[in-house]
Amino acid sequence: MTAGVDTSFDFNSDTPAGKDPDSFSPTLRRYHQLLWSKELPNGAAFDLAPEGRQYMVHRSPVGVFHLASDTITTRLRKRAWAVVREIPENDLPEYSGYTVGSTLVFPGNVVGGKQTINGARGFHAKIADRFDLTLECIRRHYLGQPNPLADTLRRYADFFALFGDFGGYVKFFLLQDLMEDDGQTIRFFHPFADFSTPAVPRTAEEYLNYLQASNTFIRARNRRIDENP
């Protein structure tokens, strides 16, 4: 396991009340630094460090990259409120927690006054802040294919180029548990048909299945992080 990273730690526990752990948890920031400061697929070092008020910054001959944290396992409680209110609280699966397996870093700098990746994936109705759908957009970005986040991802093309290809990106950020065995098909949390299907579950059964799939991913990624040398 990565020294100093506890995959059972809940980042809400060291975040001031009412604040967002992605911005205010010192443990989460340290874990991101420990996990993602490592060798890129091309052999170059990708070292991260806090810098002033910036969340995390990399500076080297490969470029300057300003990164920010974001959760990648939304429970969609507000977006699916009409469904959630029909489900008894005891029937909802236990949340796997705000642990490191449910977080990732994305470029956090604003380009051309437009939305960052975090902002765009949260506001786009076809994504609804879901990371499985975001990852499908990233997969298509590497292939040069249209996708709902295409314009946003192109603004950060230099960041994605660091990982060579989609497989390199998935491996670097330990996202293999969101992929099918072929390494190219996303293991979606909810039925998917080329972004024509609703991003938000519309029935209680769909919502419960979504939560189970999301929790399964969090647990699997935490195990992978534990096993990562």
Rank of each mutant, 00 (worst) to 15 (best):
A128R: 00
P191L: 01
T103W: 08
S214Y: 03
V5D: 06
P26G: 04
A45F: 08
H190D: 01
F9N: 00
D91P: 06
N118Q: 14
A161Y: 13
G4F: 04
G168A: 07
V84E: 04
F166P: 13
Q176Y: 13
R224N: 14
D165M: 05
F46W: 06
A157C: 07
P88K: 03
Q176R: 13
P93E: 01
N228V: 12
V64I: 13
R79D: 14
A213D: 06
R219S: 10
D47H: 10
L133F: 11
G113C: 08
F9Y: 15
L35R: 09
Q54L: 11
A213F: 06
L133I: 01
G112T: 11
D177E: 12
G108F: 04
F106Y: 13
T27N: 09
L143G: 14
S13T: 14
I225D: 12
R139L: 05
K171G: 14
I87M: 02
P191W: 03
D177G: 15
F195G: 01
T99W: 05
P107C: 03
A120W: 06
V100H: 06
T134W: 04
M1K: 15
D177L: 11
D22S: 08
Q115K: 11
N209Q: 15
A157T: 13
D10W: 07
G183F: 10
H141F: 10
N215C: 14
K19H: 11
N222C: 08
A3S: 09
Y95I: 03
F189E: 11
G108P: 09
V62A: 13
A45I: 04
L149T: 01
R187G: 11
T103Q: 12
F11L: 00
T134H: 08
F106W: 13
R75N: 09
L135T: 09
R77Q: 12
R155A: 15
P107F: 04
S96I: 01
F166M: 04
E89V: 10
D182C: 04
P93D: 02
F24N: 14
F192Y: 12
